[in-house]
Simulated assay, not measured.
Amino acid sequence: MECAGKGRGTRCMGSARRRCGRCGAVAYCSVSHQMSHWNEHKEECERLEQQMKRADVLNDFPFTFSQEATATSQVCEKQGSRCSFLSKRGIHQLGMWMHECCCTHSEESSSSLASFDSSRLLDDGWNLSGDLCPCHDPISPISECVSSWLDYYEWRCIPLHSPVALLLHWPLTIYHAAHIAGVWSSTVETRKLCVHYLGPEKELLQLAAFGELLALFPGVQIHIEFIGPAIPRQRDGEKISLCSYAHCLDADCICNFSSENLSQIANTGFVSSFSNFSKRWNCCLS
């Protein structure tokens, strides 16, 4: 850890081993640097103290905070770890996972967004076996006490070494925002939910992952309007429908039934629209 008082008139005296006694989130090389940094640090010390008390929540996160992802300090080495993480699971540069590392450059991402086929993207699956991904309805409704990735993985019966949280944070952000805004609760009957999703980028190439909203909002018709400069001009006003979860690789799994069968099984709806500020693209869960 780098000395938080670095660059304050005097050189650092060795490594930063002296931590703040209150929050424990910052460290210093010496008492003098700690004292010189106090006027700045005191404004955030209490907040950092509260965050450090929840450090165990970070440890629940299945991979982003794992040794595999954080053991190295160089950016290029960290990127190598992400590629290695995906490669070990056989999903590196495949489907929805293609944009989860820097092997796909920003120019390629922009090109993909400009020419993407929404119907093809909705057919993208997890590229994982059924035991590693949420490809069908949960065995029970989501509980109010689900508050960590460990809880979520247990609810969806997924082992912690599964990488799906990398993509599930998109629909879970919508779920969390709906709770914070007070527009959704398991105890309040809601049949329709309209969401304005600002500034989407690579998630436009990972639309199938939003199928998890079927599990998060059972029986609710959801309309999501994606708005932002990344929306291709030719997709202005386009509407698409999601009626199933992203599928797994198991041929005999229910998620790989025909679309006709799935439409008979599904009981919720998700509609999406997309807009480049002056343009709209609609997406529906149905």
Results as ranks from 00 to 15, higher is better:
G125N: 07
W126R: 03
W126S: 02
L128F: 01
S129H: 06
G130M: 10
D131V: 11
D131K: 08
L132M: 13
C133L: 07
P134D: 01
C135H: 10
H136M: 02
H136F: 05
H136W: 05
D137C: 03
D137V: 04
P138F: 04
P138K: 01
I139A: 15
I139D: 15
I139E: 15
S140L: 05
S140F: 10
S140K: 09
P141F: 08
P141K: 05
P141D: 07
I142D: 06
I142Y: 07
S143C: 12
C145P: 03
S147L: 07
S147P: 01
S148I: 02
W149D: 08
W149T: 08
L150S: 09
D151G: 05
D151R: 04
Y153I: 02
E154A: 09
E154C: 04
E154G: 01
W155L: 01
W155N: 00
W155S: 00
W155C: 00
R156V: 13
R156L: 11
R156D: 03
C157N: 15
C157W: 05
C157L: 13
P159H: 04
P159Q: 04
P159K: 03
P159T: 04
L160P: 00
L160V: 02
H161A: 00
H161P: 00
S162N: 10
P163N: 12
V164K: 03
V164G: 01
V164W: 07
V164P: 07
A165E: 15
A165H: 15
L166M: 11
L167E: 08
L167A: 07
L167N: 06
L167T: 05
L168H: 01
L168C: 07
H169R: 14
H169C: 11
W170A: 09
W170H: 11
P171D: 02
P171S: 05
L172V: 14
L172P: 04
T173K: 09
T173E: 10
I174Q: 06
I174T: 09
Y175I: 11
Y175F: 15
H176R: 15
H176Y: 13
A177Q: 13
A177H: 08
A178G: 13
H179S: 12
I180G: 09
A181Q: 15
A181R: 15
A181V: 14
G182V: 08
V183S: 11
V183C: 14
W184Y: 15
W184E: 12
W184K: 14
S185A: 11
S185Q: 04
S185Y: 00
S186M: 10
S186D: 08
T187S: 13
T187D: 10
T187N: 11
V188R: 09
T190C: 12
K192Q: 11
L193W: 12
C194Q: 14
C194K: 13
C194N: 15
V195L: 14
H196C: 08
Y197E: 09
G199T: 02
G199H: 08
G199I: 00
P200F: 06
E201N: 12
E201S: 14
E201L: 07
E201G: 13
E201F: 10
K202M: 09
K202F: 09
E203Y: 00
E203W: 00
